[in-house]
Structures are given as structure tokens and as C-alpha cells.
């Protein structure tokens, strides 16, 4: 019983630590001036949310969503077949492919960004949304491939053989047997792939060259300008989609799924 009470206390401390940094953001977003040393704002206002829901910020939200969605869809399209090859087959050079895929995950971000900028400049892809999407594929695609490899490693191809012998053609077999079998893993992978693109900062700044203003760039501009209230509102707006997506998924994500999609 004493041990259980200790665990309860530790659990409470952990929960509090996880929530604590988010509280000032929410408070600031509703504050009408909040001077030192007031513990809570003396007056409340929706002014910051007015800025956060202006056409400029909402456009930026839409742009960020669009880039993340497009990156995720492309990564799923290219990553699913590659994951199948890696998860189900052994072949010479497999280790080299896996190593290549680990590079963007393990290499510190700044190591690739400068070279990528130079490469994209030569390809004429800087300053454009599709350039940013292509750049986001660098961290997102390997991630998706590795997730799908792990999903396919647990996939029993005999159910495909069974479906084919029952008269399903290759397309129907894929759509009605293979896809449903790997769908939970694919969705979990896609959710976290979306979040990887969603939270990119420097890559967007470098490739977009200031012309692709995603939400984190707008957010930092308000922080730098000292507009704590607007920054709070945009920070909440920026964190919300991920939280809602995960909450929508939460019953369906198993520990094992989570184990293979994790990246910092």
C-alpha cells in the first residue's frame, strides 16, 4: 500500500511536469496584458485569438496542413512498397539500404540542411511549396519505409496466396486483403509521419527561403517580436491538430505500433 501511494505521487508529478509548460501558453493567449508580478492576468481578452484567426495565420495553418498531408501521402505511396521489400525479403545490400534510411533520422538536422539548400538551389526548387514538400520527404520518407518494413515483417503472405487461390486478382488481393491487414500500422505510421513534417522548422526556413511561411515560422516571428499573447494563441493553434489526431487514434495504437514509429 505504501508502495502504491509512492507510485501515485510519482505519477502525479510526471503528469504535472508534462502539462506545466503548456499552461502559460494557454493563459497568455487569453490575457489582456499580463505584467510582472501578477500570478494570473488581471484582464482577459480574445484579442490574441483574433490575430490567430486572421486570414494570414489561418492561411499559414492551411499551408502547413497541406504540406504535411502531401508529404505524408507521397511517403506512404513510395514507402509502402519499399517497406514490403525490406520487411519480407532478404537480399544482398539490404543492410546498406537500411543504413541509408537511418541517416536522416540519426544525423543531426543541421548537418543535412545546408547541403540540401545548395542542392535545391541548383535544381531551382527553393522558395516553392513543392520544394519544401520534397525537402520534408528527407526526414519523413525513410521513417515511413522503416515503419512499413516493421509492419510487413509481421505480415503473413500466406493470406495473399489464400486470397489468390480463392480467385482474387492482384489488385483486389491488394485492396481487400493486404491493405486491410497492414492498415493499422500504416495509419499509425502516417500519423507520426504527418507530425514529423508538421514540426519541421529549419528545413522549411532554408528551402522555403522565407517565401513558404508555415505556422512555426509565423509563431517564432511573434515570439521574437515579444507578442507573448499572440505567440501563446498560435502555439496552442499549432499544437492542437497533433493532440486531436492522437486522441482520435489513442484506443487503436498498441504499444508495439508505438514502439516502431518513435522518433524524437
Amino acid at each position: 500500500m505504501r508502495a502504491e501511494r509512492l507510485r501515485l505521487l510519482a505519477g502525479l508529478a510526471l503528469a504535472l511536469a508534462l502539462v506545466l509548460p503548456l499552461l502559460p501558453l494557454a493563459l497568455w493567449s487569453l490575457a489582456h496584458g499580463w505584467r510582472f508580478p501578477d500570478l494570473l492576468p488581471q484582464a482577459w481578452s480574445l484579442r490574441a485569438w483574433g490575430v490567430a484567426s486572421s486570414a494570414g495565420v489561418l492561411g499559414s495553418l492551411g499551408l502547413t496542413l497541406g504540406i504535411a498531408a502531401a508529404t505524408t501521402a507521397l511517403a506512404a505511396l513510395v514507402g509502402l512498397p519499399a517497406g514490403r521489400a525490406l520487411g519480407l525479403h532478404d537480399f544482398p545490400g539490404k543492410r546498406a539500404v537500411l543504413l541509408l534510411l537511418l541517416v536522416p533520422a540519426v544525423l543531426p538536422g543541421i548537418a543535412l540542411v545546408l547541403g540540401l539548400h545548395d542542392l535545391f538551389l541548383r535544381l531551382g526548387l527553393t522558395g516553392s511549396t513543392h520544394g519544401v514538400i520534397l525537402a520534408h520527404l528527407v526526414p519523413v520518407l525513410p521513417y515511413m519505409v522503416l515503419v512499413m518494413a516493421s509492419v510487413f515483417a509481421g505480415f503473413d503472405t500466406r493470406i495473399e496466396a489464400q486470397a489468390r487461390s480463392l480467385g482474387a486478382g492482384p489488385v483486389r488481393c491488394f485492396l481487400q486483403v493486404t491493405l486491410p491487414a497492414v492498415l493499422p500500422g500504416l495509419l499509425t505510421g502516417a500519423l507520426f509521419a504527418f507530425l514529423v513534417s508538421w514540426s519541421q522548422y529549419l528545413l522549411t526556413l532554408a528551402i522555403g527561403g522565407g517565401r513558404v511561411q508555415t505556422l512555426p515560422l509565423v509563431l517564432y516571428a511573434y515570439v521574437a517580436a515579444g507578442r507573448n499573447d499572440v505567440a501563446g494563441a498560435i502555439a496552442v493553434l499549432y499544437a492542437l491538430p497533433g493532440i486531436l489526431l492522437l486522441l482520435g487514434f489513442i484506443g487503436r495504437i498498441t504499444g508495439r505500433d508505438l514502439g516502431r514509429v518513435l522518433r524524437p
Binding site: 510526471l14 508534462l18 503548456l22 499552461l23 507520426f192 522548422y201 515570439v223 502555439a235 493532440i243 492522437l246
Partner: peptide, 20 residues
């Protein structure tokens, strides 16, 4: 809560810590 934290972009965490 532990899982939710995964979804929060680093820059949001940094600003939260700043204001804290």
C-alpha cells in the same frame, strides 16, 4: 499524457518553457 507529449512540436515546448 506521455503519448500526447510526442505530438507537440519542439518550438512550442521551447516557448512554453520560456514563459514558465
Amino acid at each position: 499524457l506521455v503519448q500526447l507529449n510526442l505530438t507537440i512540436p519542439h518550438v512550442v515546448g521551447a516557448i512554453g518553457i520560456l514563459y514558465l
